[in-house]
Computed example of a mutant assay.
Amino acid sequence: MAETEKIAQMAEILSNDLFSEFFWQKSGTTNHNWTCENQEKHGNKTHPSDVVFYYDEPYSQSRTYINCDLKSYAKGTIKAAAIKDAIESLAKQVSCAEKSPEWNQLYIHDHVTPEICGLLFVYNHDGEYDKDFSNVLSNVKADQLDIPRGSKIVVLGPKDIFWLDNIRYDLCILRGKSGSDKIPNGDQCRFFYPQLIRKTNVQIEKAKAATLEMLVGPWIILEYKKENSRKGFIIYYKRKGETTEEFIYLIDYLRHYQVLSDDTDIQIRTLDTAPIAAATFKKAVDRYIEEMTESNEESDFSKLVRNIKFSTMPQVISTFSEVEIGMDL
C-alpha cells in the first residue's frame, strides 16, 4: 500500500510543478472526498477530488475550475479498461460538482462566474510508454458519459504530459540564461490571447494562464516583457514541421495578430519535429516573403520574418525516487 501511495504521489508532484508554470492556481484542499449528489445513478456515496486548479478565462468574465484525477502508471499498466473507468468516474465527478453545495463551498470563489471541467492526468512514471495512447481512448464514447451540457473532460496522456513537461523545463532553463534568450520571471510573462474579430480578450490583466484549449492545441505562445520596452514571444510548436504550408500558416498567424513588429523578438521552439523541420521552416520564410512582397529584395518586412528564430529544445523525462518521496525530501 505504501508503494502504491508513493507512485500516486509522483503524478501529484509533477502536476503541481507543471501547471504552476502555466499559471494555474490551486483551490481548496487536495485529496478530498465529497458527497455524491446522485448516489442512486452513480452508485457512489462520495466522489474524490485529487486537486482542483483554476484560471481566469481570457474571452469571458468567468473562471475555469479543473477537477483533476491524477493517475501514475507504469508502462504495462496503462490499459484501455482502466482509462475508460477513470474517464467515466471523472464525468460523474464533474456532473455532481456542477450542483454540489459542498464542492462549491470547498473550491469555488464567491465573486466569480465558474465554469467546471474535468482533467484526467495519465502520467507514465517509468517513462517507457511508447504506444499510441489514442487507441486506449478509442472505446470511450463521449455521448455516453454523464456530463452536463457545455462541460468538458480533457485527457492528458503520457505523450501530452511529456510535451508540456519539456516546455516547463525549457522555460526554467531560459530564465537562467544570460543574453538575448533570457526570459524574465513569471510576473513579466503571460500566455498570448489575441483580440479576435468576434472574441475580445476581456480580462487582459487577469487572464495570464494557458487555458486547457491552449495546452492541447498545436502551439503554446508565451509573451513577456524585455528591457528597453521590447517584447518577446516564444512559440512552442507541437506539430511535426513536415511542410512549408504549416509554417506559412504559423507566420501568417503572427503577422495577422501583430506579433511581428520591430520592437519584438520571436523564437519558435520545437521538440519532436521532422529531421528537416529547420530547413523546411527556412523555405517557408522565403516563400512567405516572396508571396507577401512579390520580391526577393531585402525590406523591413522581410527582416522581421527572417529574424524569427527556429530551434529545438532539449528533451527531458521527469522521474521520481520512491525512496525520496517516502522520506519527504
Rank of each mutant, 00 (worst) to 15 (best):
H256Q: 12
S151I: 03
W34D: 04
M292S: 15
W24G: 03
H47K: 09
E98K: 12
R175G: 08
T270D: 04
A82L: 03
K283D: 08
Y107F: 14
K225H: 09
K131L: 08
F192S: 02
L271H: 04
I78Q: 05
T200S: 10
I325P: 01
Y169W: 09
A82W: 00
D265Y: 12
R149D: 14
E21T: 11
L14T: 03
Y237E: 05
N296S: 14
A207C: 01
K6P: 05
I276A: 14
S20P: 00
L70D: 00
D160L: 05
M327L: 05
F310T: 01
V155I: 14
L18C: 03
Y224G: 13
E291P: 02
T29L: 13
I266M: 03
Y253V: 02
K225D: 11
N201R: 10
H125A: 04
Q315L: 12
E227P: 00
Y59K: 04
D110S: 15
V51S: 01
I289D: 02
S295H: 01
T30V: 14
S229P: 06
Y55L: 13
A91R: 00
T273Q: 15
F320W: 12
Q61K: 11
A209V: 08
K238G: 07
I248Q: 14
I147L: 15
S89F: 02
E205K: 09
N104S: 13
L14H: 06
F19C: 10
A97I: 04
R255K: 15
F310A: 03
Q25L: 09
N307F: 12
A91P: 02
R306I: 12
K238Y: 13
N38V: 09
S27I: 06
A2C: 03
N44F: 13
E213R: 09
P275D: 13
L254E: 07
V285N: 00
R306K: 15
I204N: 05
S261D: 15
P314E: 13
K283V: 08
D272F: 08
S318G: 06
L137Q: 02
D69K: 04
E3T: 11
Q195E: 11
E21V: 05
T35K: 06
G43N: 11
A142R: 01
I308F: 09
A80K: 09
I197T: 12
K141E: 00
P58H: 02
I276W: 12
N135C: 06
Y107M: 06
F310Y: 14
E242N: 10
E37S: 11
S261P: 06
K152Y: 04
I204P: 03
Y253D: 04
I183F: 07
G241V: 01
G176M: 07
N33A: 11
K231H: 14
I13E: 10
K282N: 14
C36A: 15
L304P: 03
D132T: 10
G232I: 07
K159S: 13
V94H: 01
